[in-house]
Amino acid sequence: MFRKCIYIIQYLFVLIVEVVKANIDVAVIVLSRKIEVDPVVVNFKTKLKSDLCRVILANSITLTPGTMTMIMEKDIYTIHCLKKQFADGLSDSKFENILLKIEEI
């Protein structure tokens, strides 16, 4: 139980850091004179097994500015990203890795 609490705290810390970084990225896009938006819709498959962890991952992606979970069907996510670079790392994200550790416990 103690390890699970540690992973939850770690997850919340990573979520806050990623939200702040994404806010800065989106602010730069919004405040720049050149609008260099390259929206993309991507699909990726998660290794998560539990519905709760899958929903937490989907909500975390949506909470991060510049990305939005459009569809979540079983282990396949459809994500809209404001820029193509925001899609990098979705399939092997820090969020998913910590949630996988939580599922193991």
Rank of each mutant, 00 (worst) to 15 (best):
F2C: 03
F2I: 15
F2N: 09
R3H: 02
R3G: 03
R3Y: 09
K4C: 06
C5R: 03
C5A: 06
I6K: 14
Y7N: 15
Y7F: 15
Y7I: 09
I9Y: 11
Q10R: 13
Q10L: 12
Q10K: 14
L12V: 07
L12Y: 07
L12E: 05
F13D: 11
F13T: 08
F13K: 12
V14S: 10
L15M: 02
L15E: 05
I16N: 04
E18K: 06
V20L: 11
A22F: 14
I24P: 00
I24R: 00
D25M: 02
D25V: 03
V26K: 02
V26H: 01
A27W: 01
V28Q: 01
V28P: 02
I29R: 01
I29N: 04
V30R: 05
S32C: 08
R33G: 11
K34T: 09
K34P: 00
K34V: 11
I35N: 02
I35A: 01
E36T: 07
V37F: 01
D38C: 00
P39Q: 11
P39L: 03
V42R: 06
V42S: 03
V42I: 10
N43Q: 13
K47L: 14
K47H: 15
K49T: 14
K49R: 11
S50D: 15
D51V: 12
D51K: 08
L52C: 10
R54C: 07
V55N: 14
V55K: 15
V55M: 15
V55I: 15
L57Q: 09
L57R: 06
A58L: 07
N59I: 13
N59F: 01
S60L: 13
I61D: 06
T62R: 04
T62E: 11
T62Q: 09
T64R: 10
P65M: 07
G66W: 13
G66R: 09
T67P: 06
M68Y: 03
K74P: 02
D75P: 08
D75C: 05
D75K: 14
I76A: 04
Y77V: 01
Y77Q: 00
T78V: 11
T78E: 14
H80Y: 15
H80E: 11
L82E: 01
L82F: 03
L82R: 04
K83A: 00
Q85I: 02
F86A: 00
D88A: 08
G89D: 13
S91D: 12
S93F: 14
F95C: 08
E96D: 12
E96H: 12
N97W: 02
N97S: 14
N97V: 09
I98V: 13
I98K: 01
L99V: 12
K101L: 04
K101G: 12
I102Y: 05
I105S: 15
I105F: 12
